[in-house]
Amino acid sequence: MKGAWWKILAVVLLVYTFTGGLLMEVPRLVIIHESIRALYFHVPMWFGMVVMFLVSVVYAVKYLRSHQPLHDRVSAGFAHAGLVYGLLGIFTGMIWANYTWGSPWHGDPKQNGAAIATLIYLAYFILRGSLDNQEQRARLSSVYAIFAFAAMIPLIFIIPRLTSSMHPGSGGNPGFNMYDLDSSMRRVFYPAVAGWILLGVWIASVRIRILEAEEKILDLDYEKNK
């Protein structure tokens, strides 16, 4: 069980998030009402996604400098976890928007930005799939990951700030910081963010081990057929 403390911490934090997030008292705001609880489940997806992609791009840079296959596997594993969080973020957002805005897809700039970010990482995995040579795949996909990350920043961080968004907290809509001065929501929100991020790291670490195993199997096959 040594070294597993953070996995236990992730489970504890998420159990707390689900019970506290669904049962504890929340501020009542017009339009949003009880759907404000989406804050504990939808918003941490984006925090998680950005952290995962950041780790992925850091390891892509590391790979280009060191050429160790491990760094490439870490980069790919975190990109995978980030993509999972991005898709979950879009789906939870669509459920929330269906009740608050009246339809699942509203053409909100943040929604479109998220869809584009997802497309970029889907393209990343297609690129990985269409290269057979292991070394070449690692090198080219690292380059693409860095380039894609650089292109993603203006999309999901700057453009939504130029145009008005319907998300709470922007464009004059009531948000998290304006009303929640008693910090009652923060008691659940921060542990929720930490819990989801830890779970993402867990998913990534499993994915990295699967990649490692797959490569070992390939090597063994190669040895056998030689």
């Binding site: 584009i116 497309l119 970029i120 393209a123 690129l127 894609a148 292109a151 999309l155 453009i159």
Partner: peptide, 13 residues
Amino acid sequence: MVMAVLSFPIIIG
């Protein structure tokens, strides 16, 4: 094919 897939999300901005 790969070119099309890679390029579209990048140049949307």
